[in-house]
Amino acid sequence: MVTVIHPNLDQTDAKMNASDVSVFYGDKMAIDNVSIEIPTKYVTAFIGPSGCGKSTFLRTLNRMNDTIPTARVEGTITLDGDDIYRSKMDVVQLRARVGMVFQKPNPFPKSIYDNIAYGPKIHGIAQGKEELDNIVEVSLKRAGLWEEVKDRLTDSGTALSGGQQQRLCIARAIAVDPEVILMDEPCSALDPIATAKIEELIAELSGRYAIVIVTHSMQQAARVSERTAFFHLGKMVEYGRTSDIFTNPVEQRTQDYITGRYG
């Protein structure tokens, strides 16, 4: 079985390219031969039922699965043409270039300022205090949080509301000037207003960064993404323009899932 890739996709620069990627946890195959291009200028959404492998696949894009001892990745994944699984790849550097935002906001138990400044400091991006201040301000502004926190940058990041914490985490990811931002259900712990703010933020960041979002909310995928891939049982079933996937999917399984007939 092969993935149905809609023929009407426009040709666009691929930031990342996965080909024939399979992931195993021990003997169990979690991802079965997935190939996809992650375009630079679009938001790509991964949807699918729980356990379909969409988060596992997302994690292969910045080698987050390396932390799981039994996990094994086959196939190739490239970032700007470079194989990210090659032995000389600097994984810390990779994760700066391919940032990640998680389901639950996970700010460091440090000040708002330090949450943002930490990455640029350890990566040696900022020379001196003034530049660091500037990075913190720009990152918080891009994450739409600056106005809310500019007078209390020394407060703990964990003292913010859930939605603010998540935007802080996005600002933290932005601070190291990544090329790709991976988001694993970034809004599932947030209320609708905080969710709307994150979605607005995704729209603003789109184009500047390649964004990949895993979401359980199909409405959210429909709202924020230009491209959607549907995963099922470890396979990528269908990939196309979001508007086509949600109005006229080709595969019956896609249709059944998005219309609530799955299972």
């Binding site: 199909m218 409405q219 949600f246 109005t247 006229n248 896609t254 249709q255 998005i258 219309t259």
Partner: peptide, 9 residues
């Protein structure tokens, strides 16, 4: 219900 795909159509 926020219908999708064939339901929406």
């Amino acid at each position: 219900r926020a219908p999708m795909a064939d339901d929406l159509r």
